[in-house]
Simulated scan of single mutants.
Amino acid sequence: MKIIVCVKQVPDTNEIKINPETGTLIRDGVPSILNPDDANALEQALRVKDLYPDTTVSVITMGPPQANEMLQECIAMGADDAILLSDRALGGSDTWATSNALSAGIKKIGEYDMIFAGRQAIDGDTAQVGPQIAEKLGVSQVTYVKEFELIKDGILVKRALEDGYELLKVKTPCVLTAIKELNKPRYMSVKGILKAGKQTIKIWNAEDIGVDLTTVGLKASPTNVFKSFTPKPKGAGVIVQGDTPKEKAANLMATLKEKHII
């Protein structure tokens, strides 16, 4: 069985800051991590490999050269190999252009049974790339996967909804996007870390994957971020004083009348 996992290196949102003058992210000193939902996607692929040892798990990402570190982490967790799509021609791609590049990279990898991806990336929260890849590859897709089971003639999954779930049966090849409820990602192993240190990450440029340059990059992206900003902090709240609920209610009414609100 062949499984491909789409991952992304993202800035740690706990450390994110925005320059108030330019409206851009301040990346200096901000650590980069494996996107959390992608970690769940990789974990599910590795669980299939645990059940069927002849399974191979390939990880693919698009990003700058430093994304190599994140791919090494994926190998240390148990992936067999990793591919980095890195080229200035791909820079500035929105979700549509990104999915064009990733689907071209997946086609170069060759045949596959499943493609796993995270539901969405924490630096964009669009949840668009996984479904777009499925459309461009012409395969079935199930998003928001919270439970996964291999069955005789396909895959049985639970797809999370706002008020419940859907129980769906899907045939391979297919694209599945994972949410955090699907599993708990494993840690890197000592054996895996040693393997990652010796393994060379494949780096492909736009020419290597044969992607149409008019469909990738900033100029080809129909979506552009006009401005990013952090909300202004709200003023301090007022605590209504009083020893009993009745006193607090009376004091609240007096304050509202004083401000001519009522």
Results as ranks from 00 to 15, higher is better:
P53Y: 02
R88A: 09
K257L: 14
F148H: 11
G138R: 11
I179E: 04
L161T: 15
K171T: 13
Q72T: 13
L176K: 09
R186E: 00
E15A: 15
E73R: 13
N100K: 08
S58L: 04
I179C: 06
P20D: 12
A39I: 01
V5Y: 08
I4V: 15
L137V: 06
L25F: 15
K198D: 03
N205T: 09
V10S: 06
M70Y: 04
L25Y: 15
A196R: 11
K234Q: 05
L256C: 00
G210C: 01
S228E: 07
V5Q: 07
T255R: 11
G63F: 11
P53N: 04
Y187F: 09
E181S: 01
F229K: 14
K146I: 02
V175K: 10
T143Q: 02
A97V: 03
R159L: 04
G63K: 12
I151N: 10
V5D: 08
E135C: 03
V129F: 05
D28S: 13
D54Q: 14
F148P: 05
K171I: 04
Q9W: 12
N19K: 03
K195H: 12
K248T: 02
D163E: 13
S86I: 08
K169W: 00
F226C: 02
I3K: 06
D212S: 01
D125C: 00
R119M: 07
A178G: 01
A121G: 06
V225Q: 05
V48S: 04
I155F: 07
L46G: 09
V145P: 12
I75W: 09
V190N: 03
K49D: 11
V59I: 13
L34E: 07
K227P: 01
K198S: 10
K49C: 14
Y144V: 03
P233M: 02
L218Y: 12
I75V: 15
D113F: 01
K246G: 08
T215R: 15
V129S: 05
N40T: 09
E135N: 03
A89T: 13
S221W: 06
G192N: 15
N35A: 09
K184W: 02
A196G: 06
G118F: 02
D54C: 05
A250V: 14
C74W: 09
Q9E: 15
M77F: 07
A41L: 06
P20T: 12
I109Y: 09
T56F: 09
E43M: 03
T98E: 00
K232A: 11
Y112H: 13
K191Y: 12
L218G: 01
M188E: 13
Q44S: 13
V139N: 08
M114I: 14
G242P: 04
T255S: 07
T61F: 10
Q199N: 11
Y187K: 06
I16F: 02
R186K: 03
E181D: 08
R186I: 03
V142C: 03
M70S: 14
F229Y: 15
P233D: 06
C6T: 09
L156D: 05
I201F: 12
T56V: 12
M114L: 15
I155S: 06
P20A: 11
D38C: 10
P53R: 05
